[in-house]
Design a protein around this nucleic acid. Structure first.
Ligand code: NAD
Ligand code: NAD
Lengths: 206, 206
DNA sequence: TTATCAATGTTATTTATTTAACGTTAAGAT
DNA sequence: ATCTTAACGTTAAATAAATAACATTGATAA
């Protein structure tokens, strides 16, 4: 299979979100120029990205919003929806859970894990918190491949190891720890310190 | 001035963090190979990144950790420390504030803003929350160029506009809204939905 | 019916970034 | 003292990504 650049995938996801918003406002079609303008890229960029998923527009009417949104969806999304695990249901974990719960479009299930005995068995958004020791058992049942880590830094590597044993292939890492993982596990760093320092650097340049 | 790639800046920040950790454990020097291994890049990448800041190591002893950390710092950091504004002191904003307050190394000041009359005047971590209407007045005094937006999506664009009027040049945007900003304002998207869908996509491929 | 035109899909070019190659350096061994 | 060697700094090559160029499409109007 031919390798699709991460940046392209990222932009496709952004296009999809924009299309969804526009559809909500009753728009039915648009040209690459408009999509590019909203997304903040060039029209050529947009067109060549759409080439990747093989979507065909019309020179006269541009792209059909409904259609294109569906096409991107069937390219990006898991066919049966994605299940995720959130490990560490503290302040940040709870915030992320609530956000996912209300805002993520293609989420089929959420599992919660912690070690705090005061939390185990309680519910957030109607979802029960399990003990981290049960993670392999619980994840072996469903088809959950993605996890969010929001535990204290000192437990992050240990948790990552357990997640991988339980079959997790993608991680959103909110801790400042650089996790050691096998090659086939995809980690996305969510810590704010790197972006904050980067923004601070560029803000100073301008 | 010659343009430095964003990726290089990002990696330099990561190197610095690693060096800091190693120094904490009493290490005094290291080779590009080791730094690369921990950071997850190639040794050549590391060496050519360090070339950008003009740091010289020794073929025999590699890099002096203390020295290199300082060199990266004086290249990346604002000389007098960076001040930031956090707009929207809700669940997420508070979480970010506490994290910055305890974890950010080069932060000289934090200003908080909200609209909720129940919050105005109260303190978090000893920092008073101001009304958003006072933002221009307050930011005009200090040298704050960076802001974090954690308000509801419907207010994000309005807040961004006010921040820019108040002289902000860099934004960490935690809302799912794609902000319209002038060319010289640097925006970093912090929303989790794009990364989550991306990770989900790649997790499925592997 | 056919000419026009604006926007598309695709290939070619340019630019940016990463990786490889190689000469240089200095500590430690002979 | 000089040889060896492993790691550095730098230049050159390769790869990846974005942009530009251009041929193609099909709706519209003469
Ligand atoms: N990315 C960011 O911008 C950002 C912002 C704030 C916090 N953080 C990081 O996120 C993490 C969580 O922060 P928080 O403020 O929510 O902390 P918190 O203390 O409120 O929550 C941590 C939770 O993890 C649980 N936990 C501890 N060890 C565990 C384990 N082995 N398995 C499962 N659960 C475990 C704790 O019981 C607790 O409920 C920290 O690493 C913090 O540094 C990141
Ligand atoms: N990036 C992520 O992963 C992530 C996660 C959770 C939430 N979010 C987003 O972050 C934002 C905040 O989420 P939250 O859960 O903290 O919401 P919240 O309602 O707890 O907090 C929002 C705060 O913003 C204040 N506010 C509203 N309008 C304002 C204005 N014009 N100026 C200043 N302050 C104003 C409110 O008074 C409130 O205190 C939302 O946009 C949400 O979608 C993002």
């Amino acid at each position: 299979m031919l390798k699709i650049p991460e940046k392209t995938i990222q932009r496709l996801i952004i296009y999809r979100k924009i299309l969804n918003d526009l559809r909500y406002f009753g728009e039915t079609n648009l040209f690459s120029t408009k999509l590019a303008k909203i997304a903040g890229y060039s029209p050529v960029q947009v067109r060549s990205d759409l080439m990747v998923i093989g979507y065909q527009g019309s020179p006269a009417r541009g792209y059909d919003i409904d259609n294109l949104e569906t096409s991107i969806g069937s390219f990006i999304d898991a066919p049966k929806g994605e299940g995720i695990a959130i490990v560490g249901v503290g302040k940040l974990g709870k915030s992320m859970l609530e956000y996912c719960y209300w805002k993520c479009p293609n989420l089929s299930s959420i599992e919660l894990f912690d070690v705090d005995s005061k939390l185990i068995g309680t519910e957030v958004e109607g979802i029960k918190i399990h003990h981290i020791d049960d993670i392999e058992m619980i994840l072996s049942q469903g088809n959950i491949r993605v996890a969010i880590i929001t535990v204290p830094p000192e437990n992050a590597q240990d948790v990552a190891g357990r997640l991988i044993l339980a079959g997790i292939k993608g991680i959103l890492n909110y801790t400042p720890v650089r996790l050691k993982v096998p090659e086939d596990v995809f980690v996305e760093e969510m810590d704010m310190i790197v972006p904050l320092e980067k923004v601070s650097f560029y803000a100073r340049q301008s």
